[in-house]
Write a protein that binds this DNA or RNA. Structure first.
Ligand code: ZN
Ligand code: ZN
Ligand code: ZN
Ligand code: ZN
Lengths: 144, 144
DNA sequence: TCTTGAACCTCTATCTACTAGAGACATTAG
DNA sequence: CTAATGTCTCTAGTAGATAGAGGTTCAAGA
């Protein structure tokens, strides 16, 4: 049995984060020692590792919640898991597209700065007026 | 003079967001009408447009605060503005790098799924164990 | 002039995914 | 036994807004 600190070390997750996951129902309430300290077994470690890795791949906690409940039903079709993963891929693609547009605009802005005074600075000018921009980085404001 | 709704329309910013910017000191407190409603002039519109465009380019509000105070001192060197913009570009680059690694891993994962049961699903397997991954998407966890 | 409806006011709470700290109890090493 | 570390609960804070409650003000039509 692992204390919360050992579990955190083993899974690469900080202790307060583990308690947070328990609080929001992502991890089940574990056993307690005589002194009221949490004690975890192997399955908790696996579950936490699953959560951590999913977070590293950018899945939101709600998606992870769904993935976990899917993984508890091994006989079912994995179509639902597929959909979640594809949604995540689409979200990542959208972010990359947006960030790439931002990057181009930032580079253009920085390249045009002549290192003079604020009054002449292209960076300040461009920030004040989108018409100085070359691209439509305004699209898909929802994502970032 | 513009009411808050007209200002929001003109700048493309929602009304509660304008009040929020005022609350955190990013916009100065405007005049009020006899009935206590906010009234804005041209300079407030310019300032708000600057904020909006900077947000669209991904600058955090604290950076925008600094940029605004720079733009109030037209005679100064723009070196500080340059640094802020370059920092932002570096942050965008880091995010793109991380997201690109995630994208590759997600695509690999999805491609390997044979559309069978959860028990055999590569998506679930990979999420449970990073050693199934081909890349080090773990690096630079701080950013996303 | 009266009235309706939109726009405005303040204040509080909510969202994501945690992180930090206070003050108290438990455990372990020396 | 004591000191250090670990753990407990609880609250509050982070970014950048958004949403709602409950109340006022404004502009236009009848
Ligand atoms: Zn410049
Ligand atoms: Zn622009
Ligand atoms: Zn599958
Ligand atoms: Zn991995």
């Amino acid at each position: 049995m692992l204390t919360i600190g050992k579990l955190g070390n083993a899974a690469g997750v900080k202790v307060p984060t583990i308690r947070y996951y328990e609080q929001i129902g992502l991890l089940p309430e574990p056993e307690r020692s005589a002194g009221n300290q949490r004690l975890y077994g192997k399955s908790a470690l696996e579950r936490l590792a699953f959560i951590r890795h999913s977070r590293e791949l950018g899945f939101p906690l709600e998606a992870i919640r769904d993935l976990l409940s899917l993984s508890d039903r091994p006989d079912q079709s994995c179509a639902a898991a597929d959909i979640i993963a594809k949604d995540q891929l689409a979200a990542v693609d959208a972010r990359i597209a947006r960030l790439t547009a931002l990057k181009a605009e930032l580079e253009r802005m920085i390249a045009q700065c002549a290192q003079g005074t604020i009054a002449d600075c292209r960076i300040i000018k461009v920030l004040g007026d989108h018409s100085h921009c070359s691209q439509d980085h305004r699209i898909s404001e929802a994502v970032e």
